[in-house]
Simulated assay, not measured.
Amino acid sequence: MGAVAHLSLRDIRENDLAARLAENAGDDCPRTWDGWQCWPDTPAGAVARRPCPDYIYYFTRPPTCPRQAYKQCSRAGTWYVGPGGSEWSNYSTCSTLAVLQTRVKVHLAAHVVSVAALIPAIVIFFLYKQLRVPRVVLHRNLFLSLLLNSSVVVAFLAVVMLRDDRHARIQSNSLGCIGLLLLTKFCRLTSYMWMFCEAFYLHKLVASAFAEQRSLFVYYAIGWGFPINPIILYASFRASHANDQCWVVPADPYEWILNTPCLIALLLNLVFMINILRVLVTKLRAANTHEPSQYRKSVRAALVLIPLFGLHFLVTLYRPAGVACHATELYHHLNSCVDGLQGFFVSLAFCYFNGEETSSPREFASMLNASRASTRVSGDSDRIAKERDDHTPQPTP
């Protein structure tokens, strides 16, 4: 009975299609179903366009900017037939690949700029002994964590995300791919922890009347040791409950294992920043300093501390919803730049534009030039003395 009803329904559909074909012969391409969606009657020689349905993206997120598929109606009133001999609809315009690749390339370029800026800065920190004070040692470790983070991100994007065989690599779920992803997450956690150490140290320095702390063991434990624990916990849950696709696709419940320490560090850094500014303003008022230049210096100091404490991440912490699609793309590019260029900005603020750090290479160059000049003067003196001796008449015996 079901088979008879099914055949009857098929016959009805075929008869209806034949009737519409006869009615629209030579004028329009008849409405049709291509397996994804319905296409309306379309005039001969025109192009039909339909919004890309969300379900064609399967488990990936649909694009923020609406896209359209299209279907060509020939002048004869028939739909375009593909190489396979059947009607063909073009859904290639629905792909988000080009947009995603642009995001990845912007992110990659930002991290490359940071790597190029961080390497000379770290060399300067290691090269000069006068810079080996606790404050600069903290800067050096933060720079190292940022360099490792940017380098590993560049490697992951280049080796996995920008390769032509990226889908095969991700689906293979190999240990090498998973290990590289975990390394990116570990380095990112270390950078957040060292940002926290910078804020905590400066806050403690200001609160204790600028008395430097000699032992940095606690800071090393927080910066390099603590991130191991969330990484081990995260890897255990992912391996047990979401062990697929090289762990590239976030598993929302477990991502909070890594996100929570970062958010706590940012919030604490914000509290430290506010209290540091409060102490500075209090000291200025206590000194009866009413000069605007002093307050301007305080504001500049606060602005310099923003990338050091990671507070610039608060700008893109919330992703706006319900805005224009192009604004959403702008947000993604801004987020990539804010994340990737942190190493570049802290290098400028705390190395290249910092008088103490830049004076060391200048002093070394001055000493080197002075040494060369003294060597030349000494050589010239010896040569002149020798010539004088040669021209001095010797006494006769």
Rank of each mutant, 00 (worst) to 15 (best):
V4R: 11
L7I: 13
D11M: 12
R13H: 00
A18Y: 01
A18C: 01
A22G: 11
E23W: 08
N24I: 10
G26R: 09
G26P: 04
G35R: 01
P40S: 04
A44C: 00
I56D: 00
P66C: 05
A69R: 00
R75W: 15
A76S: 15
T78D: 11
T78K: 15
Y80H: 15
V81F: 11
P83V: 04
N90A: 01
T93I: 02
R103K: 00
A110W: 04
V115R: 06
V115S: 09
P120Q: 07
I122M: 06
I122L: 05
K129C: 10
V133G: 09
H139E: 09
R140G: 07
F143R: 04
S150D: 10
V153G: 04
V154H: 01
V160G: 03
M161V: 04
L162W: 10
L162Y: 08
R166L: 01
R169L: 15
C177Q: 09
L183S: 10
L183I: 07
F196Y: 13
F200K: 12
Y201C: 06
L202V: 13
S208F: 05
A209R: 12
F210H: 15
R214H: 03
S215T: 07
Y220L: 05
A221Y: 05
G223P: 14
I232C: 08
D244A: 11
Q245P: 00
V248C: 07
W256L: 01
N259T: 09
C262Q: 13
C262S: 13
L263Q: 05
L268T: 15
N275I: 07
I276S: 09
V281S: 05
K283F: 14
A286T: 02
N288E: 14
E291V: 12
Q294M: 08
V299S: 00
R300P: 02
A301E: 06
L303N: 00
V304A: 14
V315G: 12
A324Q: 09
E329W: 01
L330E: 08
Y331M: 04
D339Q: 11
V346N: 06
Y352N: 02
T358Q: 15
R362Y: 02
F364R: 14
S366K: 06
S366M: 01
M367Q: 08
L368H: 12
A373S: 03
S378V: 07
I384D: 08
R388K: 10
T392L: 03
T392G: 05
T396G: 02
P397W: 14
